[in-house]
């Protein structure tokens, strides 16, 4: 499964739910405001670390750059739209809107 999360974890529980319903080996892709979860040293870093325990977590580079996010939680990988397409090709997708 590929889970896309597009909401800020500081305002919305989408990421939290996504982590709860994801299974080991699933992939979580942070897009749009969802990339805010990748900021290192935030109040939501423990949540992201929990996600990283069982899933691969990626963040979309275009959204990171737009938000000037460079200091990311260790373990979060960066991908672009090509990578997004590849992830969709490999997995059924659920959008945590």
């Amino acid at each position: 499964m590929l889970h896309t999360v597009n909401k800020s974890p500081f305002q919305n529980t989408s990421l939290e739910s996504c982590v709860r319903f994801s299974r080991p080996g699933d992939v979580i892709l942070l897009i749009e405001d969802g990339v805010l979860a990748a900021q290192a040293g935030s109040a939501k870093t423990p949540l992201l670390e929990e996600a990283l325990q069982k899933c691969q977590v990626l963040a979309l580079s275009a959204d990171l750059k737009a938000r000037a996010l460079t200091d990311l939680v260790p373990g979060v990988q960066i991908t672009d739209y090509n990578g997004f397409v590849d992830l969709v090709e490999q997995n059924t997708t659920h959008s945590w809107l």
């Binding site: 499964m1 709860r20 319903f21 994801s22 299974r23 059924t92 997708t93 659920h94 959008s95 809107l97």
Partner: peptide, 17 residues
């Protein structure tokens, strides 16, 4: 429970939220 839902999600062809 959530693990049952997660298992069902994994079986789907497509999911609409």
């Amino acid at each position: 429970d959530s693990d049952e839902i997660a298992a069902m999600m994994a079986e789907q062809h497509n999911i609409l939220a």
